[in-house]
Amino acid sequence: MPIIDGTYFKTSVPATHTPSFTVADGVEFAPLNDLPYLKQARKGYVVIGGGKTGIDAVLWLLGNDVNPDHITWIMPRDGWLIDRKNTQPSREFFEQTMGAQANQAEAVATAENIEDLFDRLEQGGVLMRIDTNVRPQMFHGATVSTDELTELRRVKNVVRKGRVTRIDIDQIVFTEEDSIATTTNTMHIDCSARAVPVTETYDVFQKNKIVVQTVRSYQPIFSAAFIAHIEASYDDEALKNKLCQVVPLPNHDTDWLTGLVAQMQNHMRWTKEPDIREWLLSNRLDGFTHLTQVSCETTPEQMAILMRLKAAGPKAAANMPKLMFEVMKITAER
């Protein structure tokens, strides 16, 4: 029996991780988990972290009637965000979910370069950003609703000076030459942990060990189930690894495209295996495959969306090498 290695993700959360910066004695500092236990209001609140945890902290504060002018949001990098309405794999949300898939394919098919790609993705409602005047350089797959995005935009004091290196009693230091003021009556909220701080990928199947990783973007639970199905259904290790190519976890903005390419390559392999096609259609963790199937429930409007997706697919695949070449150049310069 193989060993199932489920430690790959090394999940890091604010409540348990050690910040990468120092905090002086006397500074009010806590993970966002402690917010519900505050007994009295503070003069100000500093949210440290621009990812989904930081987003959740800001939304909690606003939802509990904290004046947005009393919130300082330290955002080392802005991130591209996914609209939650596009991630609902049910007939009720077909137009939004599959419409976004069609918009995505058309954006990849017609983009002249990476900047143009993200412009098209934003225009098509596939991706969103908090500040339309700031070009995001991060993508972690964070999902928000448009109502939540409206709330986040109420916070105007967003600090983009890089990562915090030290919090003193009276200042938050980024570099020795760059800092902002703070007070002893300010709550500093740690949202700096990266949920899944890994960058390397490995073969999933390694003789007597299975290293559980993502084989579809942002879906670790589906990925684990899929890997289990492949282990139970196939014997050849080379074939199993071919069917379970790892979709890298995203970090930079360009990782959106890198992940999409890997996911599409997996999907193409899966569609050639009748057993896998049947498994996907019957698996409750994969509603997206079911939505692509034409049935008596498919309306003319839904059929039109599926035809758009079908038409754009080959064009997107043909344009991807050009876009990925630019991604390689951008990555080398970082």
Rank of each mutant, 00 (worst) to 15 (best):
R91M: 02
R91N: 06
R91G: 12
E92P: 08
F93Y: 10
F93V: 15
E95Q: 08
M98I: 12
G99R: 00
G99W: 00
G99T: 05
A100D: 01
Q101K: 07
Q101G: 08
Q104R: 11
Q104W: 07
A105G: 01
A105E: 03
E106H: 02
V108F: 12
A109C: 06
T110F: 00
T110P: 00
E112T: 12
E112D: 11
E112G: 15
E112C: 10
N113K: 05
N113E: 01
I114C: 12
I114E: 10
I114W: 09
I114V: 03
E115S: 13
D116W: 06
L117W: 00
L117H: 06
L117I: 07
F118R: 07
D119H: 12
D119V: 07
R120Q: 08
L121I: 02
E122Y: 04
Q123M: 13
Q123C: 11
Q123G: 12
G124Y: 06
G124Q: 03
G125K: 01
V126Y: 02
L127C: 13
L127H: 07
R129T: 12
R129N: 03
R129Q: 09
I130P: 01
I130K: 06
D131N: 15
D131Y: 04
D131V: 11
D131H: 05
T132N: 12
T132R: 13
T132A: 15
T132H: 13
T132Y: 09
V134I: 15
V134M: 07
R135Y: 10
R135I: 15
Q137M: 14
Q137P: 09
M138E: 14
M138I: 09
M138W: 10
F139D: 03
F139R: 04
F139Y: 13
F139K: 02
H140Y: 11
H140E: 14
G141C: 08
G141L: 03
A142M: 10
T143C: 14
T143D: 06
T143A: 13
T143E: 11
V144A: 04
S145G: 11
T146V: 12
T146D: 11
D147K: 15
D147G: 11
E148W: 05
L152R: 01
L152H: 05
R153G: 00
K156M: 04
N157S: 13
V158D: 02
V159L: 13
V159E: 06
R160E: 06
K161H: 14
G162K: 01
G162F: 02
G162T: 01
R163P: 04
V164I: 07
V164K: 10
T165V: 10
T165Q: 14
R166A: 14
R166L: 09
R166Q: 11
I167F: 04
I169A: 15
I169L: 14
I169V: 15
I169F: 09
I169N: 15
D170V: 05
D170T: 10
D170L: 00
Q171F: 07
I172M: 04
I172F: 01
I172A: 06
V173H: 01
F174Y: 09
F174D: 02
T175R: 10
T175Q: 00
